[in-house]
Simulated assay, not measured.
Amino acid sequence: MTNLTDRIAQLRDQKSRSAVLGGPEKKSPPPPPAETSRKLPERRMASDSFMLFSYTLLGVAITCQFLLIVWLDLV
């Protein structure tokens, strides 16, 4: 078996499957309807540091452009 495709097919055909390739063999029974109908409380979104940095950078850029326009208008 030198072909990679043949090797993969052979591994798939083996009866002892791993959890990575074949998934779990046993499936758990579905939860009772009472548990699924219960509404979970919504979580507030955490502040994202990248978004905070992006909006800060945008604010600085707009402020600098406004100050540059005002300074060029006065000079």
Rank of each mutant, 00 (worst) to 15 (best):
I8D: 09
A46W: 06
E35H: 01
M51C: 09
S47R: 12
F53H: 03
Q14K: 07
L52F: 12
L58C: 15
P29A: 01
T5Y: 00
R12E: 11
I8K: 12
S28T: 07
R43E: 07
L57A: 14
T36W: 04
E35L: 05
P31I: 00
L52Q: 15
D6P: 00
T5I: 15
P33K: 04
A9Y: 12
S49C: 02
R12N: 12
K39N: 08
R38N: 02
R7T: 13
R38G: 01
A9S: 14
R43D: 01
E25T: 15
G22H: 06
R44Q: 06
G59C: 05
A34E: 06
G22K: 07
S16V: 14
V60F: 08
R12I: 10
I8C: 02
P33M: 03
S16E: 14
S37L: 09
D6V: 08
R7N: 11
R17P: 11
P29R: 07
D48R: 10
G59D: 04
P41W: 05
T56L: 14
S54T: 01
P41R: 09
P41E: 02
S16Q: 13
D48H: 12
E25F: 12
S54F: 04
L21H: 02
T56K: 13
F50S: 04
S54Y: 02
I8R: 10
R43T: 04
L11F: 10
D13F: 08
P41F: 02
A19D: 06
F50H: 07
K15A: 15
T56F: 11
E42C: 06
L21V: 10
Q10Y: 11
F53A: 05
G23Q: 01
R12S: 11
A34G: 01
G22I: 00
K26V: 15
P31K: 00
M45E: 04
T36H: 05
K26Y: 15
A46Q: 13
I8W: 00
L57K: 12
T5C: 01
A34V: 03
K39S: 09
K15L: 14
P41T: 00
E25M: 14
R44T: 09
E42S: 07
R38Y: 03
P32L: 04
P29T: 07
V20Y: 04
K15F: 00
A9F: 11
S16Y: 11
A9C: 08
E35D: 01
E25Y: 12
F50K: 08
P32K: 08
P29C: 02
T56H: 13
S16W: 12
G23C: 01
Y55F: 01
F53D: 03
P24I: 11
R43G: 03
T5D: 12
S18A: 10
V20P: 00
L21R: 09
R12Y: 08
R43H: 03
P24V: 11
P24L: 14
A19L: 06
R17V: 15
A9M: 15
L21D: 06
K39V: 10
P41V: 03
P33F: 04
P41A: 04
S16M: 13
P31Y: 09
K39E: 09
R44C: 02
T5H: 11
Q10C: 00
K26R: 15
L40I: 05
P31V: 13
